[in-house]
């Protein structure tokens, strides 16, 4: 487990590394390029509510938006991991961002849609370390934020590192989420 990212790539591309590792070496440069492109901030963001705050993630980082599925709690994981959900046969973790970002004090226990308000959704994010869902209170929709006007994140203390920056549009404030940091 020296480099978890490396492991995730291997696991994704090859089930049998002993047979296919040669091909992987050939593919490696392409993976690196794809990563760079994704890091460039696009103009369209998906905006969603967590409590009273509005957050946004680059639309390219969103795989899909799900109605809250049945969530199975997993023992021995961090409090902000609600559990795993079954997305058409794929088992994916669901994160409680409000807990992660300390928007609430006590962890909530969620096992399915009945525990939550009707507007709650799970936003499934793409991530090189493994796709993961985040539970949000409401999805607002897509907002366009001019890249040039994005503000850097104000220094709010060391544990607020999941904020990548701020964006403003139509008098609203959008907190840009650093997906990788939020899921760490």
């Amino acid at each position: 487990m020296a480099n978890p990212r490396f492991e995730a790539q291997l696991a994704r591309f090859f089930y049998r590394p002993d047979e296919d590792v040669g091909a992987w070496l050939e593919l490696a440069p392409e993976i690196a390029e794809a990563g760079e492109v994704a890091e460039e901030l696009p103009e369209e963001f998906l905006a969603f509510e967590l409590g009273a705050e509005v957050y946004a993630v680059p639309i390219g980082a969103v795989r899909e938006i799900l109605k809250v599925p049945a969530i199975t709690g997993v023992p021995r994981v961090a409090e902000h991991v609600l559990g795993v959900m079954n997305v058409r046969g794929e088992m994916l973790p669901v994160y409680d961002l409000k807990q992660r970002l300390r928007l609430v004090d006590a962890p909530q226990r969620v096992t399915g849609p009945t525990d939550l308000p009707r507007e709650s959704r799970v936003v499934l994010l793409k991530d090189p370390e493994g796709d993961a869902g985040i539970l949000v209170d409401r999805v607002q929709g897509v907002v366009r934020l001019p890249l040039s006007k994005l503000e850097p994140a104000p220094n709010l203390g060391a544990d607020r590192r999941a904020v990548a920056g701020l964006g403003r549009a139509g008098g609203n404030l959008y907190i840009l989420l650093d997906v990788e940091a939020a899921l760490a």
């Binding site: 049945a70 199975t72 997993v74 994981v77 079954n86 994916l92």
Partner: peptide, 27 residues
Amino acid sequence: TKPLGGRLKGVPGIAGATELGDRRAVL
């Protein structure tokens, strides 16, 4: 048995998850 997405694969004591009749993931 399917692995728990990349981020949860190291949970000690859990090999993965599977789905039963009601589609809910079962560890």
